[in-house]
């Protein structure tokens, strides 16, 4: 029910993102989704990749600070109001979104929303009860 996500600390200086993608490509690791949270002083890169543990190992070996967290991937039809329905459910369950990002799958029919909620167990229950499709890590990477 949960998808493993890698987070990497980024200092605001040129070439860091390029370096990460170069390291991952060099180990034949595919990035399925990503987002960058940035502040004036630093950034946090969040990645969903096909080989989580290997990605973590090689990035760490290249001197990056890497964390692993769980997120929820929700599949919704790629049409108007898709995100709104998920957020309405979250709101009704009293959940807070720590962050989220999204991508559209290859067929273009569905969108995948990646969420980090303050209460992940409660979020999974609420979303399943409301009838949403929650994807596993393998499913996300197979899309």
């Amino acid at each position: 029910m949960r998808v493993e996500q890698i987070a990497v600390f980024l200092e605001n200086k040129s070439g860091r993102l390029a370096e990460i993608t170069r390291v991952l490509a060099g180990h034949n690791i595919n990035i399925r989704a990503l987002s960058v949270a940035d502040t004036a002083d630093f950034g946090i890169l969040r990645l969903i990749v096909d080989k989580v543990d290997e990605a973590k190992r090689v990035l760490r070996a290249n001197g990056f600070t890497v964390g692993k967290t769980n997120v929820i991937a929700v599949e919704v039809p790629d049409k108007v109001g898709g995100l709104a329905t998920v957020l309405k459910t979250a709101e009704e369950a009293g959940l807070n979104v720590e962050y989220m990002y999204a991508f559209v799958n290859r067929s273009g029919e569905n969108a995948v929303l990646i969420f980090r909620f303050d209460d992940m167990d409660k979020a999974i229950d609420a979303l399943l009860q409301a009838g949403f499709t929650i994807l596993s890590g393998a499913q996300v990477c197979a899309l």
Partner: peptide
């Protein structure tokens, strides 16, 4: 320097630390 022990994927946590 940010070690893995203090790193978080949430901006809020890192800003609270600073």
């Amino acid at each position: 320097e940010v070690s893995e022990r203090i790193f978080s994927d949430e901006v809020r946590q890192l800003e609270a630390l600073t």
